[in-house]
């Protein structure tokens, strides 16, 4: 088990290998399909981003609504491949990590290697379990998108596995 902190730095990323179990502590940003579409538009138009991308991790998640007294709802990973076409420009803009589930395209893999980034996978369908590692959560952009808004999430020891490491090795290559 390797413990890592966000934002990610180069030395941390380099030490991680596909298949490593990790626990992530710090701020991660929740965003999925609709938010990614907006991100791309913002990059293309040179608009100010809702958060500083440098070294950050985006978690592909659209949580359930928060009941009174809870921090977050159920919050497991969604299928990453739907974000494939948006990922290389985000990595170019400074993003260093993604958390999701499932296979990534060759283009994403190439971009991960090129920009020294990393892709984590976590447990699909385990939104109740994963919510237990969330300590704070707030919507910071596109609140009108509901579950597809951008969430700033503080996690402690959030469990994941390295899916694609900075050398392009892929846990799913069976």
């Amino acid at each position: 088990m390797k413990k890592i902190k966000t934002p990610l730095d180069e030395s941390t990323i380099k030490k991680l290998e596909a298949g490593d179990f990790v626990e992530i502590t710090g701020i991660i940003y929740g965003a999925r399909d609709a938010a990614h579409k907006e991100f791309l538009r913002m990059i293309e138009k040179g608009e100010k981003f809702p958060f500083d991308l440098k070294g950050q991790i985006i978690y592909y998640v659209g949580p359930t609504p928060v009941p009174p007294g809870a921090i977050i709802g159920s919050c497991g990973p969604t299928t990453s491949s739907r974000m494939d076409k948006f990922t290389p420009p985000l990595l170019q803009a400074g993003l260093k990590g993604m958390i999701g589930k499932g296979i990534r395209s060759e283009k994403v893999k190439e971009a991960i290697v090129k920009y020294g980034a990393i892709y984590f996978v976590t447990y699909g369908g385990c939104g109740a379990y994963l919510s237990q590692f969330v300590k704070e959560c707030e919507i910071i952009a596109f609140s009108e998108l509901g579950p597809e808004a951008v969430y700033k999430i503080r996690v402690e020891n959030f469990p994941a596995i390295v899916g694609i490491d900075s050398k392009g090795r892929d846990i799913y290559s069976y």
Partner: peptide, 21 residues
């Protein structure tokens, strides 16, 4: 193991099993 833990937490704390409801 995580899946089984998830099922227990969902039942006990009444959190949806998966965020994709």
């Amino acid at each position: 193991e995580v899946i089984i833990e998830n099922i227990k937490i969902a039942e006990r704390k009444r959190i949806p099993l998966c965020q994709d409801t």
